[in-house]
Design a protein around this nucleic acid. Structure first.
Length: 256
DNA sequence: ATGGTAGCTCCGCTA
């Protein structure tokens, strides 16, 4: 089972690219982030024509998440983090076959010390409580999404800039990610790759993609029970090379 | 430290 995560940065703009990529990459499950679409505008019919069912949680202009699945129903759908009052559409979960999928668009946080940064840390704390319960209910759990946190220095092009006081790499953000992993989750990518310099996001500015000035912030985490059956993991850079691309490339994990 | 680009909405905000 091929499971992927892609921040499309507007599904309205990127639908043709999503359709092409679904055909070429043929994932079984996809978590999307930054769809930027209200639910009544979600293109579920176009995706169904390609064999994908979808569940979604969106809003106008910002945020928005969805889960797509091929040849499977999406069951026990959870919209948003339970018990956490959140005006922003950033979380959705569903069960696909015997795997529970949690799809997150983690808060960016703008800059360390800002109100948005405090919201990011509060949000991650709420996710921690939610995932603890999800792991109780579902041994086979995949938590994927745009985490807006680069786990360690291998995951940034310039550790001097992206240091412990910088947004996306700060001490508190990385600690919050480690706290999620400590629940019994593993960075699927790192089960199969020790290298640095492999990224999932490149800023639109300064020709960052061409110069590979990126970060690895899109993650696919697998639970203890899935660790042994994680056959492969990586990042598909192909859609990032296309005209009018998203600034993110899909991250994926394959379960045997 | 700043400002660079992209998407969307409304002329700024978010990333």
């Amino acid at each position: 089972m091929k499971i992927a995560s892609w921040n499309v940065n507007s599904l309205n703009v990127r639908l043709p690219q999503l359709e092409q990529w679904l055909g070429e990459f043929a994932p079984d499950v996809v978590g999307l982030q930054e769809t930027k679409l209200e639910d009544h505008r979600f293109p579920d019919d176009a995706l169904a024509a390609l064999g994908y069912r979808s569940v979604f949680h969106g809003q106008k202009t910002y945020n928005g998440v969805a889960i797509l699945a091929r040849n499977h129903a999406l069951e026990d759908v959870q919209i948003a983090i339970p018990g956490f009052d959140d005006a922003q559409a950033r979380a959705i979960a569903a069960t696909v076959g015997d795997v529970r999928i949690v799809n997150l668009y983690v808060v960016n946080g703008q800059d360390v010390g800002t109100e948005k940064y405090a919201y990011k840390l509060r949000w991650l704390d709420a996710v921690h409580g939610w995932l603890a319960g999800e792991l109780q209910r579902h041994e086979r759990l995949v938590v994927l999404g745009d985490f807006n946190i680069a786990p360690d220095d291998r995951d940034v092009h310039d550790p001097a800039t992206w240091n412990d006081e910088h947004i996306l790499t700060s001490t508190a953000e990385r600690a919050a990610l480690q706290r999620l992993l400590a629940l019994g989750l593993h960075d699927g990518f790192r089960l199969h790759n020790d290298e640095g310099g492999i990224f999932s996001w490149w800023d639109y500015r300064q020709a960052a993609f061409r110069r590979n000035l990126g970060l690895r912030i899109d993650l696919t985490l697998v639970s203890d029970a899935l660790r042994g059956s994680t056959a492969n993991a990586g990042i598909d850079r192909t859609p990032r090379t296309w005209e009018r691309a998203s600034d993110h490339a899909p991250a994926f994990v394959e379960l045997a």
